[in-house]
């Protein structure tokens, strides 16, 4: 009786595995030839013809993941095809960005990530394999209002206290999780209000571990974003908010003044710090498909079940449903602001 060689079975198993893992690549309708996309709506055929994939560049369980998953339900109703969330975490969003850039531009793949930190990280490490400026914006979804706070037991009561301490040579510790994370916002804030003695304490994962260090008093001051993830700490007295960096007060924290009310220095720059996020489609996606996705997204954002969830979790007040065109204009202004800070950021990293 012939005996199976163990290695042979292992090899055949490997083949099986690689077949299972290979991306299923059905023949997608090719974009019209001569493809340097004219903006006029060409009929690119029936769409969508298969499930839509939303790439989320973070692990499951975060804010972006939650919003994408909640939106997927009404989107499915609008588009008549299943909408699935695909988490591609890692590499400071770069792995997802590259995968997204290379995906079939047929409208069946869109991305929902945080493009501002991705963009600012390119100041230190050049972008390879992706180009944010080539992405097509489908719709604006969420704007993140930042809030400046000190720990609840901090000696500082106002920004003036902080600036006086800074002038006296006191070091001010900010926490961050890297150039592709919260660092740019902290540096930009210090730069705008004129803090000279900022210390950038790195190595954190995110709000999850910066918040306890902050409450313990290991850090002095921090720009928190989005507001909705930290309001609970304001209510509990763990954080003492100094100001909200937005044109108007936040409905959830009506007692916290805005930076403009307080006449903070560099207020125009400060108000531009909130990063906006929306759906993007890969370059060369046919315009009529982008338009269809845009319409569906804006409708999904008004879905009663989604709205109920958004209200309960505090996400609702961050929502900025906007068309792809409006959102693109917003994004452009944002990138311009960050570019002016390139040198400051490089200095802070090293």
């Amino acid at each position: 009786m012939s005996r199976l060689r163990p290695w042979a079975t292992v090899l055949s198993a490997m083949a099986l595995l690689s077949a299972a893992c290979a991306p299923s690549a059905p023949p997608a309708p090719a974009p019209p030839a001569g493809a340097s996309q004219p903006a006029q709506p060409i009929d690119s055929g029936p769409f969508p013809t298969k499930p839509i994939e939303i790439i989320v560049p973070f692990a499951p369980g975060g804010g972006y993941d939650a919003v994408a998953r909640q939106l997927a339900v009404p989107l499915q109703k609008e588009l008549g095809q299943p909408v699935v969330v695909k988490n591609v975490p890692g590499g400071g969003q770069r792995i997802a960005a590259r995968q997204f850039q290379q995906s079939e531009p047929d409208g069946h793949t869109i991305m929902y990530g945080s493009d501002t930190p991705l963009f600012t990280s390119t100041f230190v490490d050049a972008a390879e394999g992706f180009d944010i400026f080539s992405w097509l914006w489908v719709a604006g979804i969420r704007g993140q209002t930042p809030m400046v706070a000190v720990p609840g037991n901090s000696p500082y009561k106002t920004l003036e206290d902080v600036l006086t301490a800074d002038k006296a040579g006191k070091k001010l510790r900010f926490g961050h999780n890297g150039i592709g994370g919260f660092l740019p916002t902290q540096v930009a804030f210090a730069n705008a209000v004129g803090i000279k003695n900022g210390v950038w304490v790195g190595g954190f994962q995110g709000t999850a571990d910066i918040a306890p260090a902050f409450i313990r008093g290991d850090l002095d001051i921090e720009v928190w974003s989005p507001l909705s993830s930290t309001t609970k700490f304001v209510e509990s007295g763990d954080f003492r908010p100094l100001a909200v960096l937005d044109a108007k007060r936040s409905p959830t924290l009506p007692n916290v003044p805005t930076a403009r009310e307080l006449k903070w220095p560099g207020v125009d720059k400060l108000e531009a710090l909130g990063s906006q996020s929306g759906f993007a489609a890969p370059p060369k996606t046919p315009a009529d498909r982008v338009a269809k996705l845009e319409k569906a997204t804006l409708k999904a954002l008004k879905d009663p079940d989604f709205a109920k969830w958004a209200k309960e979790t505090g996400v609702a007040e961050d929502l900025i449903p906007s068309t792809g065109k409006d959102f693109g204009i917003l994004k452009k202004a944002e990138y311009e602001l960050w570019k002016t800070l390139t040198e400051e950021l490089k200095k802070a990293v090293n």
């Binding site: 369980g61 609970k232 309960e312």
Partner: peptide, 17 residues
């Protein structure tokens, strides 16, 4: 993180309260 994701998913605000 998973437990928090579950709470958030069900519209519950995990936190001090």
């Amino acid at each position: 993180a998973l437990i928090l994701a579950a709470l958030l998913f069900h519209g519950l605000q995990p936190g001090p309260f």
